[in-house]
Every structure is written in structure tokens, then in C-alpha cells.
Simulated scan of single mutants.
Amino acid sequence: MSTGSAIAIYFVIWWIGLFAVLPWGIRSQIEEGDVVKGSDPGAPARPRLLRIVIVNTIFASLIFAAYYVVWTKGLISLDDIPFLPGPKPKL
């Protein structure tokens, strides 16, 4: 696997993971009881984006490390995936 491919795969894992991690621990302004005038009441009271980015980076690094080990050791190949169709026989 080239460095460029590894960076691209890590970025995709990080970005998808961000959408999973983003709502963790977020409380809306209504839940906090402090709605800022002119804002959406469902908006986060304290977004804590730095904490979310750090947690997501750790999460993505663990997932990528597992993927990298599986890829380099050849633990799973495309032949091991049962739903991929094989070559079509010639008639």
C-alpha cells in the first residue's frame, strides 16, 4: 500500500467516524435551559469540538491500524468475501 493510499483511506475513515462521534455528549440549548436569542433552540449549548476531534482521531487511528494489519498480513482477501461474484463461465 502506498503512502498516498494509506493517507486517503485514513482520511475516509476519519471523516466517516466524525459523523458517528459528533453527537456524543452534546446537549441542546433547550436541555441546558439557556436558549440564546436568535439561535436555533436545538443547537448545541457547548459543542466542545476539540474534544470531538481528539476522540475521533483516536477512534480512526485504531480502526486504520486494524485495517492496516489485516491488509499487510493478508488475513482477509477478496476471495474470502462470499457476496462478490466470481468470473462468469464461458458458454
Rank of each mutant, 00 (worst) to 15 (best):
M1F: 03
S2Y: 10
S2C: 14
S2K: 14
T3M: 09
T3V: 10
T3H: 13
T3F: 13
S5L: 12
S5A: 10
S5C: 09
S5G: 07
A6H: 04
A6Q: 13
A6L: 11
Y10C: 03
Y10I: 08
V12M: 12
V12C: 11
I13M: 14
I13W: 09
I13L: 14
I13D: 06
W14D: 11
W14V: 13
W14F: 13
W15N: 09
W15T: 14
W15I: 10
I16L: 15
I16N: 07
I16F: 08
I16T: 10
L18W: 08
L18R: 08
F19S: 09
A20P: 12
V21C: 09
L22V: 14
P23C: 03
P23E: 03
P23A: 03
G25H: 04
G25L: 01
G25A: 01
I26R: 06
I26C: 12
R27D: 08
S28Q: 10
S28P: 04
Q29G: 11
Q29R: 05
Q29P: 11
Q29V: 05
Q29H: 06
I30V: 15
E31Y: 02
E32I: 10
E32K: 15
E32S: 13
E32G: 06
G33S: 02
G33I: 00
G33F: 01
G33D: 00
G33T: 00
V35S: 06
V35D: 09
V36A: 04
V36C: 03
V36W: 05
K37C: 08
K37I: 10
G38D: 01
G38P: 01
S39C: 09
S39L: 08
S39E: 14
P41N: 13
P41D: 12
G42M: 14
G42P: 13
A43D: 09
A43G: 07
P44R: 04
R46Q: 12
P47S: 10
P47E: 11
R48S: 15
R48V: 11
L49C: 07
L49S: 08
L50S: 10
R51M: 09
I52R: 15
I52N: 10
I52H: 14
I52Q: 14
I54D: 07
I54T: 11
I54W: 14
N56V: 02
N56R: 02
N56Y: 04
T57C: 07
F59A: 08
F59H: 10
F59W: 13
S61E: 12
L62C: 05
L62P: 05
I63S: 07
I63D: 05
F64P: 04
F64T: 10
A65F: 08
A65N: 05
A65W: 08
Y67S: 04
Y68A: 10
V69T: 03
V69H: 02
V70S: 05
W71E: 04
L75F: 02
I76F: 00
S77N: 01
S77A: 00
S77V: 00
S77C: 00
L78Y: 01
D79M: 00
D79H: 01
D80N: 06
D80M: 03
I81K: 00
I81A: 00
I81L: 01
I81D: 00
P82H: 06
P82V: 04
F83I: 09
F83A: 05
L84Q: 01
L84N: 01
L84C: 03
L84R: 02
P85L: 04
P85N: 05
P85M: 05
P87W: 01
P87E: 04
K88C: 05
P89E: 15
L91F: 07
L91R: 12
